[in-house]
Nucleic acid binder design. Structure first.
Lengths: 227, 227
DNA sequence: GTCTATAGAGCGATAGAC
DNA sequence: GTCTATCGCTCTATAGAC
């Protein structure tokens, strides 16, 4: 048996369909991929989707179930490990946030971060039975863990404030991640001074913004305190 | 001629189509409205859209052209008036932000804020010729004005930082506004402590978050400064 | 000018041949 | 098991009757 470069999964029809679907979802949007286009890219027959996944929606469910389980499992595991290593000490806001945004910004996995962001945005724009199911199963429990961790990191805040700021954080992260092409909007507006396609700079700027926004220690307009 | 309760525009076929389109876009999403559904609600014939607007896309363009021109015109005018009244004094970050988020949160116009937010999110998720045109014509100039105003309000920041934080601000605002139903996600996650359907509380929480995030005066993880 | 009726294209799903 | 051929549906756009 000759040594193949690709593992068995890459040549398996079902795996090729999953890969093609993930790629097309990230590129074109989740609702804009037809079965004909998808099966052409995967190199399988039109009927293969129905045969292996039952329906078009079955394939999408498989893609997002797998992705969401893996990503959120890792986020919660990383958070657990960090909190456990701390013992009774207060977690650093910055570290909690880093763990939270990691899947969106991991270098080498840019496409996965974009796909994940697109999924959340799609759910907000047009929730479906599929997105609702995946969100409640794989995202809600993770979100509750992070809200609790943020509360530990910010003892001066009430749960109410933390909840609001978690919502704003998620919104800022995922919507920013939907525009990371070479000619993204903020690159145009800033003349290239800021550019979401430079992932490392994006991470630093994003974490700065989120840390300050969540911590909340800013001058109020009425008091007009200076730096 | 008997006195009618409704002005001429409300009974005009074109106006009824524009109103029906705006309502359906806000309720169901911009890409999910068929001509049959739209013309049924407007009480006109299926062919009326093509006749008055050329095509389905022509109608959408009319809706968003009008909305974007009016909303962003008002934002820029309000900003101008504020800056002019100040003379050479430094603008308050809070006031600049209030003017910026106003169209999204104005009470009485909730549906318009939602429609506006949906339009931006739709553009990020699946940019089209139509959204690109409206964004570059009606949003980009407004955005540049606000970035400049934020720079005046935050003299300790460079344009690069301001640009990043403007992007995060827009993202947080519009994506938050896409989930303001009675059973919104953050209401579920927080057990009702935070709830985007309570617009007044949302405004306060959002402006707090944005002001802190943009100003940037938060403890860094390494220094571990306390409140 | 306005509407009816339909053309024409693309879609997801599937029966049945192999 | 896999593929071809096709069904039935929905959509936008428009030609032509009124």
């Amino acid at each position: 048996m000759p040594a193949k470069q690709t593992p068995a999964n890459d040549t398996d029809a079902a795996s090729r369909m999953l890969q093609a679907a993930a790629g097309l979802y990230a590129e074109k949007g989740i609702g804009k991929v037809s079965l004909r286009e998808l099966t052409a890219r995967a190199g399988v027959n039109l009927a293969a989707v129905s045969y292996h996944f039952g329906s078009k929606e079955g394939l999408a469910e498989a893609v997002f179930e797998t992705l969401s389980r893996r990503v959120n499992g890792k986020r919660v595991a990383d958070l657990d490990a960090y909190l456990e290593a701390l013992g009774t000490r207060r977690p650093a806001l910055d570290r909690v946030l880093s763990i939270f945004v990691a899947p969106y910004l991991e270098t080498g996995n840019e496409q996965e971060g974009v796909l994940l962001a697109r999924f959340i945005v799609q759910h907000r724009l047009e929730p479906s039975a599929l997105t609702r199911k995946v969100i409640s199963k794989h995202f809600d429990p993770m979100a509750k863990r992070f809200i609790a961790a943020l509360a530990l990191a910010c003892p001066h805040l009430e749960v109410r404030d933390i909840s609001w700021r978690y919502l704003f954080t998620v919104s800022a992260v995922v919507l920013t991640l939907t525009d990371t092409t070479k000619n993204n909007r903020i690159a145009r507006l800033s003349g290239g001074k800021a550019d979401t396609s430079r992932t490392d700079e994006l991470r630093v700027a994003l974490l700065d913004f989120l840390r300050s926004g969540i911590w909340g220690d800013a001058p109020n307009a009425d008091r007009g305190r200076r730096r």
